[in-house]
Amino acid sequence: MSRFASIAALAAAALLAPVAASAKEKVNLVLNWVPTADHSPYYYAKQQGWYEAAGIDLVIETGKGSGVSAQRVGAGTSEMGISDLATSLLARGKGAKLVAVMAIYANSPQGFYWLKSNGITGPKDFPGKKIGNPPGDASRVMWPAFAKQVGIDPAAVSFVNVSPQAKMPSLKSKAIDITSDFYNEHDLKVREFGDDLGFLAWRNIGINPYGNSIIVNGDFLAKNRDLVKAFTQVSQKAFAACVKDETPCLKALLENVSGLDEANQRDQWKRIKELMRDPTTTSVALGAFDAERVKKDHEMVKTYFGMEQAFDPSEIYTNDFLDTSIKMSGN
């Protein structure tokens, strides 16, 4: 190659380099809470370079509740996020521009925990008691629906602001009487409190809205459909890989997030797989929504909270970006 040709080739390479670098779109994913096992697939896919290969420079941000993540995504300050679907419906009714593209929890993870030694046998004993959870907690947002379902006055309890990490210590010290928490950490509470632990899953009393879902800002979605499709399918692939073998996924999580106990996270992942599994995710696609269930969730939010801005329930979600060849395992 001549000296001129060599210089020309180097110049061409220099011109192409910035184009390749700019091809990756920076995307902020705001979580619903601090990272735990249910977020391990995102860390695993990022570690494997799957998002990067799809042209996505993913930034994972710790969240402060489904309500906050729904607001952030709806306002466009985060392109994507994780939020409880009922909370997302409520936010959409207030004008938030967001669309759910993948259901992580096909079943509601919400539950209430208490100590039987405090004289609580179930929801009928909740009036007059203190419930401890963070202000943005989805169960606090949806509390009126729960209260009406079990036949108590929504105003009959008082809420105490408690961080996620302080829920169990606060319950143990009796600073609070009841706490809400995801089913993910059920085993940790059983080990801590044994037979004294009282528990009620929302799904067992007929309140089973879709739980955590991947949501996308509506404006971002309209302009970046291919990118959203790529993100959704990479995430599907990651969750399917973690369902098959959680070990490398939890390893990726623990390498990026401090203060987590591996045994606890492994227990969590077993519960998460229960929450991910339903007839739709096992037959249509991992992460798929069922239209009738979304309608019921929409009606529940409309009935208990009202909608400042009416919208068709089909507008809150889409299955269009899912890879239907990827399905949730049946066991």
Rank of each mutant, 00 (worst) to 15 (best):
P164L: 00
A75Y: 07
L90W: 14
G151A: 02
N118T: 15
L89P: 00
P154A: 13
A100C: 06
D177Y: 00
A156G: 10
P169A: 10
D153L: 02
E79L: 09
V162E: 00
S83V: 02
A175H: 11
K148Q: 12
K124I: 08
S158P: 14
W143M: 00
G67F: 13
G93Y: 02
A147S: 01
G74H: 01
M102P: 05
A145I: 05
A155K: 15
K130Y: 11
V150T: 05
G111A: 15
Y183Q: 14
A155H: 13
A175M: 12
A155Y: 11
R140P: 01
S69A: 09
M168Q: 14
R92W: 11
T179D: 11
G151L: 02
R72N: 09
D153Y: 03
I178M: 06
M80W: 08
G151N: 01
P154T: 12
I152P: 00
G67Y: 13
L171M: 11
V141F: 04
T87C: 03
G136V: 00
I178S: 05
V99I: 11
K148G: 08
S170R: 07
P169R: 08
K167C: 12
A75P: 03
Q149D: 09
G95T: 07
P127H: 03
P144L: 02
F182H: 13
S158C: 13
G122Q: 05
A156H: 09
S78Q: 13
T179M: 12
L171T: 08
V157D: 02
I176A: 01
A86I: 07
G76F: 08
F146T: 01
L90K: 15
F159Y: 14
S139T: 12
I152C: 03
S69F: 00
S108D: 08
I104V: 11
I131W: 03
K130N: 12
R140I: 00
F146K: 01
R72C: 06
P164Q: 01
P123R: 03
T77A: 08
L89Y: 00
M168G: 12
K148M: 08
V141D: 06
Q149R: 15
S108H: 03
M142P: 05
G93E: 02
S78I: 05
K116D: 10
V68D: 14
L98H: 02
D137A: 06
A86T: 09
K129I: 12
A86K: 06
S108V: 04
